[in-house]
Amino acid sequence: GPARDRLEQFAKGLVTVRATFQQDSLDPKGQLIDSSTGKLALHAPRQFRWEYEAPFSQLIVADGLNVWIYDPDLEQVTVRAQSLEEAQSPLTVLTDLAQLDRDFVVGESNADGVPTLVLKAKAKDPAFKEVQIRFGESSPSEMLMVDLLGTETVWRFDGWERNPKIADAEFAFTPEDGIEIVGEPLRAPSATPLAD
C-alpha cells in the first residue's frame, strides 16, 4: 500500500537519520495532558538515541543489544535487553523493516488522505492498542499510540536529516559513577569474559 511504499522508500539507503520531535499526550476526551520536545537519532537497523529535553530531561539509548533509559533527575538508569523492549515499542520500526513484520500486524489506512501504517503488536498483552505512523512525502510525519486507558500519545517529527555523520558514541551509554543502575545489561556474545 502507499504507506508501506513510503516507509520502504524512507528506509532504503538509510544508514543514519536525525529529527526533532514534539510529543503530546491526550486524555481519552482529547484534552492535552502534557507535551514534551526532544530530538532523535537512528542508526539502521536497530540503534537509536531518543533525547527528551523539555520539560524533563530523559535519555533513551538502544545500542543494538540493550536499551538504556537514563533519568538524570532520578539519577537512575534502567537497562533492558533490546529484544524484549522492541516487541513493545515501535521506535526501531522506522529503520528495521524485519522487526516491523516480526513484531506487528501491519495494516494501512488513508485517514484524511494521509498514507498511514496501522500497527497492532503481536505481543501477548501489548501495552498499547494500536500504533499509527503517518507519512509525508519522503518521511514519517507523525506517530500515534493509544494505550489501554485510551490515552493517546502523538509524536510529531520535524527536520529529518538523512545520513548525517553521527559518532558511534551517541548510540552507546556508559553510566557515570553514583548513578543507580537497575537491571543487568546483556553482554555481547563475542565479548571475551574478563579475566578474574
Binding site: 499526550s25 530523559q58 533513551i60 494505550d147 489501554l148 486507558l149 490515552t151 500519545t153
Partner: peptide, 23 residues
C-alpha cells in the same frame, strides 16, 4: 505516566480502599 510508552495509570483511594486504573 510513562513518557516513553505513553502508558498511564491512576492509583487513587482513601481509608476504605483504593483502585488502580489503566493497568
Amino acid at each position: 505516566r510513562s513518557p516513553i510508552s505513553g502508558q498511564s495509570w491512576q492509583l487513587l483511594g482513601g481509608p476504605e480502599g483504593c483502585a488502580l486504573e489503566g493497568f
